[in-house]
Design a protein around this nucleic acid. Structure first.
Length: 830
DNA sequence: AAGTCTACCTAG
DNA sequence: TTAGCTAGGTAGACTT
């Protein structure tokens, strides 16, 4: 029976064990079926061309070509086709090979005789590249069957797949949590909550009893419920790692069946062959990266998603929950002491199970609230990759998906990653204008629309358009070139349209289309959809510059990044100069923005004057590919004189307090300072100078008097470190020159001493007990011990005075004076 | 007390 | 901090 369906692709792998090389794609259909597509008929290949400049002498290649054709791993060779490379046009042969995994060896073997192209592209990516597909596809299958709990398994070819409009995939998400013994590191109990986004139903499960039984039941639930996405809080570093360790502990070496029973979460046959796969197999694996790999499923750690979206001051599950659901006490009441888990489990197992279940469900609430999956889906849709590649991949992979496709279509050779010359040191970045200290009334903020992408488009900046002395491909004699302030030259689009500028133009058009659709959308579902899409396009466009300015990306050259920023500096400095020549004060500028004083008018209509001035000025200085926009209007702007630190009272297009850089924005500050400083800023922008000083003095006084609740004094900082497998201990010396002089490392060690989990890169929280000791004495923060903290009153008072004093100095009070509570009369004060 | 160095986090 | 980039401010430990 013919099956037709729209499918969202979770992840891919290759199956090259048989005669054929299959690409396997796991997904979920619009109709809520689990799907496995097995793509037949594709063959792995790479390309070769003569190294160096091509001299047209085909006869010199005959021997090499013959050797290539007769290589035992090479099935056949086609070509040559003329392709563009960074040394000019060259003849390119395509070598088809028996198996994808022979390519790395061949690459090495041939490297002296040939220049290799397209030789490091994972074979499974060919599905997206050759088919021009993204995460959502439409499939027609003549027949299908069920296998391994998957509803629809279809053997098809690329021709049976078509592009598909985005649709909300009814993902099935499994969230889990383990409670573990501190003494033994065994698993005491587990909980799972499964969300079916098709039906909207959640089911809850708890597991206790002997450890092997818990793991086996958990595995059975994974297989029976067959989820697409596995989540939980910090599962990458904790829960999955622990399951893996316990599997190793509880099963004998080589007992693949025993291991599969305990942790065989993969969506594949339960046999030894699948067990033996190094990745994408029966048993979840973590390679060199942080990301876990489970065949057929996508691991999406709620902690990682939440930190990226929310940037929380602290990163515990309970903190993030309170941040998102402040009114919901049930969700975050704390009644189990995790540092005494063994006792808790012995004394009141029911409560521990309930606690465990709650911590399994919260990640689902958090993921839904921050729309983590939809966000990934939108980026996957725009860049043309699977869900897993967005959730667990890197920026280069997203850019690759777009650029390689475009290169293949235009006969541009695809160089290997790392083939470019290394960058010599850093390139120069954006220009930051000195900020004039003090309060400035009426400031218009103008900024360039998508500055770096526009510069790339406007000057046709691309790997494929850069003029290189060493290339056989030189511009026409009368060709108009774009010459960057660094001297780098780029071809004219009439002669060669760059791939990147073309892609960026397309993305800009997509963004405009999505924005237009968003404006027209009536129901919340489509509104959210178009908003996600336009945002995904924006994210993707902005990541182009970074990738092309990096030292290792395949399509880069050091002149690209430095030309982009050089043009940016040139453009913005020119406009600042012209504004100043006209008598307009430029208060500040950073990279793509200009803060300009609005001429004052008599009477009441200063806001209207600012709007008119903002729009008029922006338009006047706009050029074709450097469009300046009036972004915000401020009634007041203040900075104490440091770059990247300022505040503003926005009055157009809406009313808001805008703060950049200051302690209020920093997650390594403490609540008493951030909330107080925000209040201070409101006084400053309202022109309430006396209140500004009085408020600052009161804050410092209260701190000195020890009147602040310790919860408002918790500091938080990320801590690195790594687990040394051989020594079986945590080491910090790799990441820190002097680890024990760093407060966060000392805190991490306290956490570890308590037997609590520590995740490298995660923030740790602490209170300063005594800063007169060097290094200062700090105590890790545990909510359960909240009542027992002593803090260093003088330390907090000084830190407050320092931060507030920088600001109040503009009003005549410095840090020292805030601390003492009175102003020293200087010799010159009268 | 001033300067150097490492580290963190932010703006864009 | 999962091969995007640079500019910049600040804290704290330590040295001179």
């Amino acid at each position: 029976m013919v099956w037709r369906g729209d499918v969202g692709i979770i992840t891919t792998r290759i199956d090259s064990d048989g005669d054929e090389n299959l690409i396997e794609l796991w997904g979920r259909s619009r109709e809520n079926e689990s799907v496995l597509l097995r793509i037949h008929g594709m063959q792995p290949w790479f390309e070769v061309c003569p190294p160096g400049r091509w001299n047209g002498d085909f006869s010199s290649l005959e021997g090499r070509l013959h050797q290539l054709e007769n290589h035992e791993e090479v099935t056949h060779v086609t070509g040559p086709v003329e392709k563009w490379t960074d040394l000019g046009y060259k003849p390119v042969w395509k070598a088809y090979v028996s198996k994808p995994f022979v390519v790395p060896g061949l690459r090495k073997e041939l490297s002296g005789r040939w220049y290799i192209l397209s030789g490091d592209i994972p074979f499974a990516n060919r599905f997206f590249l050759d088919g021009d597909f993204a995460i959502h596809v439409s499939v027609t299958a003549k027949e299908t069957y069920s296998e391994n709990g998957i509803d629809i398994v279809a053997d098809i070819t690329l021709d049976d797949v078509e592009q598909c409009q985005g649709f909300p995939v009814p993902w099935k998400i499994l969230s889990f949590d383990l409670e573990t013994s501190i003494a033994e590191s065994t698993i005491l109990c587990a909980a799972v909550v499964i969300e079916d986004r098709g039906t909207g139903i959640r089911t809850k499960h708890t597991f206790s009893g002997d450890e092997a039984g818990i793991m086996a039941d958990l595995t059975n639930l994974v297989l029976d419920s067959n989820p697409d996405i596995i989540t939980g809080y910090n599962i990458d570093n904790f829960d999955l790692t622990r399951l893996n360790d316990r599997m190793a502990h509880l099963s004998k070496r080589g007992d693949w069946q025993g291991k599969a029973e305990l942790f065989g979460w993969g969506r594949v046959n339960r046999d030894e062959k699948e067990y033996r796969r190094r990745r994408d197999g029966l048993i979840p694996k973590r390679g060199a990266t942080r990301a876990w790999n489970i065949s057929g499923r996508c691991v999406m750690d709620c902690w990682w998603q939440a930190r990226q979206v929310l940037r929380p001051e602290r990163e515990t599950l309970s903190f993030v929950s309170k941040l998102l659901f402040p009114d919901d006490d049930e969700r975050h009441k704390m009644d189990i002491d995790a540092s005494k888990m063994d006792e808790e489990w012995a004394n009141r197992p029911d409560e521990v199970l309930e606690y465990c279940l709650r911590d399994a469900e919260l990640p689902l609430d958090i993921m839904a609230e921050i729309q983590a999956v939809r966000r990934c889906e939108a980026i996957a849709s725009v860049s043309g990759v699977s869900l897993d590649t967005v959730a667990n991949g890197n920026t280069s992979q997203r850019i690759d998906a777009l650029v390689i496709k475009a290169a293949d279509r235009s006969n541009i050779g695809v160089p290997l990653t790392g083939s470019a010359d290394a960058k010599e040191g850093q390139i120069t970045g954006g220009y930051v204008h000195d900020v004039e200290a003090g309060l400035h009334p009426w400031v218009a903020i103008l900024d360039f629309k998508s500055m770096y992408p526009s510069i790339m488009i406007g000057n046709n900046i691309c790997y494929t358009t850069r003029v290189d002395q060493g290339s056989t491909d030189q511009p026409l004699e009368d060709e108009e070139l774009f010459v960057s302030p660094t001297g780098a030259k780029f071809r004219h689009p009439s002669q060669r349209q760059g791939l990147i500028p073309l892609l960026l133009e397309d993305l800009m058009a997509q963004r405009d289309a999505n924005k237009a659709a968003l404006a027209k959308a009536k129901d919340p579902v489509s509104k959210s959809f178009y908003d996600q899409m336009q945002y995904a396009v924006k994210i993707l466009m902005n990541s182009f510059y970074g990738v092309f300015a990096s030292g290792f990306y395949r399509f880069t050259h050091r002149d690209l990044g430095s030309s982009i920023t050089a043009w940016a500096r040139h453009n913005i400095k020119k406009i600042i100069q012209r504004l100043e020549d006209e008598g307009h004060g430029v208060v500040y500028s950073d990279t793509d923005s200009i803060f300009v004083s609005v001429p004052l008018v008599e009477g009441e209509n200063q806001v209207e004057k600012m709007i008119e001035f903002g729009h008029e000025t922006a338009q006047r200085f706009s050029e074709d590919s450097a469009i300046l926009e009036f972004e915000k209007g401020l009634s007041a702007f203040f900075s104490h004189g440091a770059k990247k630190r300022y505040i503003g009272q926005v009055v157009w297009p809406n009313q808001e307090l805008m703060i950049r850089g200051y302690e209020t924005q920093r997650t390594d500050s403490f609540a008493y300072l951030t909330t107080g400083m925000k209040r201070l800023f409101e006084h400053i922008l309202a022109g309430e100078d006396e209140e500004t000083i009085a408020y600052s003095l009161e804050m410092v006084r209260a701190a000195k008097a020890g009147e602040i609740g310790v919860r408002d004094l918790i500091l938080s900082k990320s801590c690195k470190g790594r687990w040394d497998k051989r020594k079986a201990k945590w080491i910090f010396t790799e990441d820190y020159a002097n680890p024990d002089s760093m407060a966060q490392v000392r805190v991490a060690k306290q956490i570890l001493a308590k037997g609590l989990p520590f995740t490298p890169g995660m923030k740790v929280s602490y209170v300063v007990e005594n800063a007169t000791e060097k290094p200062m004495r700090v105590r890790a923060w545990y909510e359960e011990e909240a009542d027992s903290y002593q803090y260093d009153v003088q330390f907090y008072a000084e830190r407050l005075a320092t931060a507030l004093g920088r600001v109040t100095e503009a009003f005549g009070w410095n840090a020292k004076e805030l601390l003492s509570g009175n102003r020293q009369t200087s010799l010159f004060s009268f």
